[in-house]
Design a protein around this nucleic acid. Sequence first.
DNA 1: GTCTATAAGTAGATAGAC
DNA 2: GTCTATCTACTTATAGAC
Lengths: 210, 210
Amino acid sequence: MSKVEAKRAFSSKKADAILSAALQEFSAHGFTAATMSQVAATAGVSKATIYSHFDDKENLFVALVKKMAQQKASTPFWEQMLQGDPRKVLPLLLSKALDTITSDSTLLAFKRLIIGESGRFPKLAQIFVCNMSKPSLEILSQYLATQPYLKFADPEATARVVVGTIVYYTQMQEMLHGKEIIPMDKERLVATLVHMVLSSAEPLQSEDSP
Amino acid sequence: MSKVEAKRAFSSKKADAILSAALQEFSAHGFTAATMSQVAATAGVSKATIYSHFDDKENLFVALVKKMAQQKASTPFWEQMLQGDPRKVLPLLLSKALDTITSDSTLLAFKRLIIGESGRFPKLAQIFVCNMSKPSLEILSQYLATQPYLKFADPEATARVVVGTIVYYTQMQEMLHGKEIIPMDKERLVATLVHMVLSSAEPLQSEDSP
DNA sequence: GTCTATAAGTAGATAGAC
DNA sequence: GTCTATCTACTTATAGAC
C-alpha cells in the first residue's frame, strides 16, 4: 500500500495507537470522564500529537466509533454457520452467539458506551445500528425466509424475536450484572427460543415424502 | 405523616427538588458531564444546599437511582392486565407495553444513563434489575405458568423471550434511533411474538369439552 | 438550613521548540 | 510530525455569613 493510500484511509502507526487507546479509555470511563491526557499516556504519545491527528475530543470519539463499526461488522462468520436444517443449526448458532457475545468484554464495554451516549450522539448510535444490528437481523431473516420445509409467516419479525432474546439476555446477565439476581441457564433459554421459532412455522411439505 | 417520618424517608421539599433536578441533568448529560452547578440551578437552590443533603455527587446519583427504582417499580398495572385467556390478553398487553415504554422519554433517558454507567456503578445497575426487570419477568412467568388450558414447558424462559423482544425493539427503534434504518411495524412484531408464544404451548385439555 | 464567595484542582486545547 | 510547557475555563467541594 502506498503512502498516499495509507493517508487516504487515515491510518498511521500513531493514529492506530491513539484509536486503540481511545477505545480503552472511552470504554472504561465514558466519553466525558475519559481524558485526553490519559488517552495520550495509554497511546504512548503526547496530547499535541492526538490533536494533530484529530480535530478535538468529539472528533476522536466519532472516528473511533466509525472504525469499530466497520471492523466489528464481521458477518461472514454467521453467514457460513447459517446453512442447513434449522432444527440442527439454530441451537448451535444461538448457543455459539451467546458464548461469543458474553465473552467479549471489550465489545460489552463499547456497547455500554454507545448506548450511554446515544442521547447526545444519535448519529453514532445509528452507525452502530447500521453496521452491527441491521446485518444480523437481515442475515437471520434471510435464512428463515428461505427454508425449504418451513414457512414462516413473518421472517423479519421472527428474526427480531430471536436477536432480541439473545441481546436482552446478555444485557441482563452481563452488562447489568444480573447473573445472581435473575439467574437463567443459557441452554434453557436457547432450547425454549428454538422451540418457539420452530413451532411457529408451518411445515411447507413433508421432507420425508417427496 | 409526621415530621419525623418525613425525615426518616429522606424527603423534604428541597431534597425532592434536588432529586428531580438530578434526574433531569444526569439523564440529559450523563453522570460526569452533569454539573452540580446546573443541578443546583435547575432545582432552584444553591450548590451548598445540595451538599447539605447529599454527601457528594456520587451519593446524589445513588440516591436518585434508588428513588427511581422504588418509584417506577409499578407492577400493579401489569398484574391487573394479566388475567384471562392469553390469546386475548397477550396481544393487548404487549401492544400496550410497547406504547407505554416508547412514549416515556424520561424513562428512556434514565435507562440510557443506567446502562451507560453500569460498568462504573455495578451496584446501581443491580438495583435497576432487581426493581424493574425482575418483577416484570416474574409476573409474566407466573401468568404463563398458571394457564389452565396451556402448558408451557419453561414459563421462565418463555418470559425472557417475550420481555427480551419488547425491550430490544424499543432499544433499537427509540434508544438507538433506528426507526428509519431498520423500520418494523409494532403490531407485526406483537402478532409474531404472540403467535410464537401460543404455538409453543401444549394444549392441556380442550376448553370446549369439559 | 440556606446562601455567597472562594479554594484547590483538573479539563481541553494550543504555541512554539526541535 | 512530535514533544514540553502553558493558558483559560470550568469542576467539585467547602468556609463562613445570615
